[in-house]
Every structure is written in C-alpha cells, then in structure tokens.
Design a protein around this nucleic acid. Structure first.
Lengths: 110, 110
DNA sequence: ATCTTATGCTACTATTTTGGTAGCGTCAAC
DNA sequence: GTTGACGCTACCAAAATAGTAGCATAAGAT
C-alpha cells in the first residue's frame, strides 16, 4: 500500500512529477534547446549552431533525455516538439514575456 | 503585434533577457529552490532540508544569483519572492499542472 | 553567566557533469 | 567517387556540484 501517513493523498506522489520535470529542465542547455525549438523543427547541427556551439556530446545527451520524456521527437524534418511537449513549449513563451518586463525593471534600477 | 517575420529589430536585444533567464534557471537547483518557495518564505536551513539536503555552498551560490536578479530577497522571515519574482513563481505553478498531465500520459504508455 | 540551539554561511577536497576536439558511418547530390 | 551534410560516439580536460567540517552570531533557557 502506498503511503498513508499525514496527508490523505500522498504528497510524494503528487509532487514527484514536477520534481522530475524541474530536474530535467535544470540541466544545462535543456531550457535553451526547448527555447530554440519554439517555432520550428531543427536538425542536430542547426540546434548546435543556435545553442552557442554546444558540444555534440552534451547536446545528444539532452536530446535523448527530452525524447525519453516524450517532450520532443525526431523525424525527417529534424527535432521538434511532440504534441504533449508543445504545451510545455508554450509556457516558455510566457517566460519570454516575463523576462522582457524583468529587464526593464533591472535597467531602471541600475 | 511584435515582430514575427525575420527579426527586423535587433534579434540580440530582443532575446538577450530570456537567454539570461534560461541560463539562470538552467543551473542545478535553481528551479527547485524557486519551487520550494512557491507559497512560503523559508530559512536557509529549511530550504536546504527541502532540497534533498543540497550542499550549503551551492545553495548559497544559487541564492546569491537569485537575489542579484531581484527574484528573491531575504528578511527576518527567511528567503522569499520579491514582488517581481512572484510573477515568475506563478509560472512555476503552471509547470506543475503540465507535469501532472505529463505523468498520466507517460504512465499510460508504459 | 553559560549552555544550548538555530541560523547563515565559508573552506576544503572528492565526485560528477560539461566542454572541446577529433573523427566515423551513412546518405544524397554532383 | 568525391564532396558535403547529418547524426552521432569516444576521449580527455575543465568546470560545476557534492559532501563534510566548522565558524561566527544571536536568541532563549538554566
């Protein structure tokens, strides 16, 4: 039986998925890769070029992780979001809006 | 509407803030720290405990970075979001919704 | 006063992750 | 059959993170 203590629904079970996600996104280059794929599919080498010439070994690791997580896939047109992943990608666009506002605030206080 | 064609205005200037943000969030533990602060202020040691006993040296670096970015601050009640940062924190809550859906999909395909 | 407890760290070394370079196998065009 | 693009893999160097110890300060209890 799963955990019965304290909370009626297991707190572990309810927060684990987001923990996995945060760990995945928290690896270097993961967010950047997802950002670069925001509105187009890209080949391995095109991605590499856009990501400040990230080393192929790391890029490949990140792509494997994202494929395993079913956030991206790979076809003849290159790497891109899966249907599921695209909903996550949409949230990254929101980050851009926040960042724009943020930079204005930061500039104002320099 | 913002530019949608070929980046008529400086592409560097328009994407730099989000690049900084992605680099910041892409460091290990940064997202997790922000997640743990989502609905309460926490002391250094309380944060450490919640973040799987992250080493104090790394935690301190992350906190410094986030303070410099004016996303969090520190007062007598511990570390917590600034007004600006809380809008970013709100987006992390959305990540949780996505992650919940994601885990269901992943389970279904195992 | 002093003993305990909590806080917010810093210093140091070990381990893990990432970076950088070279190069291979496949394919398609020329 | 040579050239170029692609998607890698292997290898070692460099950088980031983990892990442990411990210090200084302050508040509260004895």
């Amino acid at each position: 039986m799963p955990d019965k203590s304290k909370r009626s629904v297991s707190p572990v079970r309810s927060t684990q998925p987001v923990m996995w996600l945060l760990a995945l996104l928290g690896r270097k280059w993961t967010l950047r890769v997802l950002w670069e794929l925001r509105d187009q599919r890209l080949s391995f080498r095109a991605l590499q070029a856009r990501c400040d010439d990230i080393s192929p070994s790391v890029l490949n690791r990140r792509l494997k992780e994202l494929k395993t997580a079913m956030i991206i896939d790979h076809n003849g047109l290159g790497y891109g979001y899966t249907q599921l992943g695209s909903e996550l990608g949409a949230q990254l666009l929101n980050l851009n809006d926040w960042a724009a506002k943020w930079s204005v605030e930061m500039e104002a206080l320099r």
